[in-house]
Design a protein around this nucleic acid. Sequence first.
DNA 1: TTCGTTGTTTCACGAATAACGAACATAAGA
DNA 2: TCTTATGTTCGTTATTCGTGAAACAACGAA
Lengths: 111, 111
Amino acid sequence: MSKQVHPDLGATQLTTVLAALSNPVRLGIVRLLSDGSERQWGELDAPVAPSTLSKHLQVLRSAGLTRTRDEGTRCYVHLRREDIDNRFPGLLDSVLSTAGSGAADIGVKRP
Amino acid sequence: MSKQVHPDLGATQLTTVLAALSNPVRLGIVRLLSDGSERQWGELDAPVAPSTLSKHLQVLRSAGLTRTRDEGTRCYVHLRREDIDNRFPGLLDSVLSTAGSGAADIGVKRP
DNA sequence: TTCGTTGTTTCACGAATAACGAACATAAGA
DNA sequence: TCTTATGTTCGTTATTCGTGAAACAACGAA
């Protein structure tokens, strides 16, 4: 698909991660993935154009929050939960446990 | 000084708070205030012009993170630690405990 | 090889952000 | 009252962000 960057979270700065999480669509995606599931790109039901969604996923990826795996023409995304928890202990837990977070409601397209 | 807004954190969205914290200068200020101290505006030694600092403090204030108290021509800032912990349990702790956070080093001017 | 599916990249654009200096507002103090 | 100290607001500039349409790239299937 493309040369994807999956940075080492050890070098990732907190400000970068916070910026990545401060957008409703991106936060919604993180919430959706927070059950540990791996989702196919096209499965993501976000209220934005495909190009915009691609951009958001790129931001999450380069902030070290998600990992993308290509398989043929498809690609699958999942949350780098363990890496994040190692680098920023407690951050994801507190973010995910917050109600009324301002996150967009990202669903899964039913086939 | 000015009509200052100190919103109820109950209505504050997580995305707003994360955005406020995702700037190095603002994160640095939060870190400085995290010991619970109240600092005078002019005491803050930030690497930006006064007008810019004023703007950053306004962002922190309207995100509900700090409270400002006027006293004569001076004003004092402190972190709304308890309110934040109530609304976003664990968030501040994890943010503050992160080393290499990308925060600017905000000091205190020595008289 | 041609076609369809699946994402990505490339403009283009308006809105928001960060920054500075200059002008301003307000309260204390001389 | 005049002056000083302390922040804030305004005007400007440059940059980044969020967005969509359209063109593109890569792969599998027919």
